[in-house]
């Protein structure tokens, strides 16, 4: 069991007797510090999607399916193709990557986990920390160096997130893929 707060895109959870792949997670804070987690879920069996909300401490049954370490190989529309260490290739539908799709870039060397259900690759989990290049962000507005003032940025792959005000276009930054949060400049 995992708490809803610990669930990540790519995890598969069991709800009402069906396996659901988590495509997207959004954590927000309610009153008195309680976390609220919104999950975008896709039913693995009947190919339908839904959104569901949980308290951060709600226990969810994550199911352990076959997982392989793979690296991204190439995109063959509409499939992202991943490859394991023995050069076997696995097609993953773009839809099944959820938010992770916005961090997929050609030539990336991040070791990902591809999850299988009845032989079919159903999700991809990125490493917790990845490094990406900032492809666009506004110049620093206030000259803040503390890291507390944030501004929006787009990184290679197309994901957008908040970064520290001192980050510039062209910088490499570390990102926590569990929360889509900027960690530091590298």
């Amino acid at each position: 069991m995992k708490t809803a707060h610990e669930i990540r895109p790519g995890n598969v959870i069991m709800l009402n007797g069906s396996p659901w792949v988590v495509q997207k997670t959004e954590t927000t804070r309610s009153g008195r510090n309680a976390a609220i987690v919104k999950l975008k879920l896709k039913n693995v069996l009947i190919d339908s999607s839904t959104e569901s909300t949980f308290k951060g401490e709600d226990k969810l049954e994550d199911i352990i399916l076959e997982r392989l370490e793979c690296t991204y190989s190439y995109f063959a529309d509409p499939m992202f193709v991943f490859m394991d260490s023995e050069y076997n290739q696995y097609d993953v539908e773009a839809d099944n990557l959820g938010d992770a799709a916005a961090y997929i870039v050609d030539g990336m060397e991040d070791v990902c986990h591809v999850t299988f259900y009845e032989g079919k690759a159903i999700s991809v989990e990125l490493p917790i920390t990845i490094a990406r290049e900032v492809t666009y962000t506004e110049p620093s507005a206030r000259g803040d160096t503390s890291g507390k003032v944030m501004k929006p940025a787009t990184v290679s792959g197309g994901a957008t997130l908040s970064v520290a005000d001192f980050v510039k276009t062209g910088d490499m930054i570390e990102i926590d893929t569990r929360t889509n949060e900027f960690k530091k400049r590298v």
Binding site: L15, E26, T28, S30, G31, R32, L41, D58
Partner: peptide, 19 residues
């Protein structure tokens, strides 16, 4: 809890599927 944050619009009335 009451909040004026924009994310509330997207979370209101969503189901929470229990195990």
């Amino acid at each position: 809890y009451l909040s004026a944050e924009t994310w509330v619009d997207g979370c209101h009335a969503l189901p929470s599927l229990q195990t």
